[in-house]
C-alpha cells in the first residue's frame, strides 16, 4: 500500500505528493520526538506525528521516509508545505488523534 493509499484510507488530505509517494509503506513510526524517529533503522517508513514543524519533514528526509501524516488536524506553519515541496516529501494532514490514526492505519494495512 502506498502512502497516498494509506492517506486516502484514513481520510487524510494529501497536501504535497513527494518523490516516494508511489512506494509501498513497509513500516510505520508514530512519534513526536525526532530523536526517537532517527533511531529507527527500517526502510520506507511512514511517519505519524502530532508535531507540526519543519523539523518533522527534515527528519523524515534524513531517514528516507516515504511520507509524513500530520495528525490531530493541527494548524501547521505555512512553511511546512514549502519545506515538503523543497525536500520532495509527501505530506498529508489528518483530523484523527494519533492513537486513532495508528489504529486506522493498522486496519488499512491489514486489509490490503
Amino acid at each position: 500500500m502506498t502512502v497516498i493509499e494509506v492517506a486516502e484510507a484514513i481520510k487524510a488530505d494529501v497536501l504535497v505528493k513527494g518523490e516516494s509517494c508511489h512506494k509501498a509503506v513497509r513500516h510505520v513510526v508514530a512519534s513526536d520526538l525526532m530523536s526517537d524517529v532517527l533511531l529507527v533503522d527500517e526502510e520506507d517508513l511512514l511517519l505519524l506525528t502530532s508535531l507540526a514543524s519543519d523539523q518533522v519533514l527534515r527528519t523524515a528526509q534524513i531517514v528516507g521516509a516515504v511520507g509524513v501524516i500530520l495528525v490531530n488536524g493541527k494548524p501547521m506553519p505555512s512553511s511546512m508545505v514549502n519545506v515538503a515541496n523543497d525536500l520532495r516529501m509527501t505530506l498529508a494532514i489528518c483530523p484523527l488523534a494519533k492513537y486513532d490514526a495508528c489504529v486506522a492505519v493498522h486496519a488499512a494495512l491489514n486489509r490490503a
Partner: peptide, 15 residues
C-alpha cells in the same frame, strides 16, 4: 515540547 531533548542525541551519533 518542540520534539527535541529526549536525551538520545549523542547515543544516536555514536551508534
Amino acid at each position: 515540547s518542540l520534539g527535541f531533548g529526549a536525551g538520545m542525541g549523542l547515543v544516536n551519533v555514536k551508534r
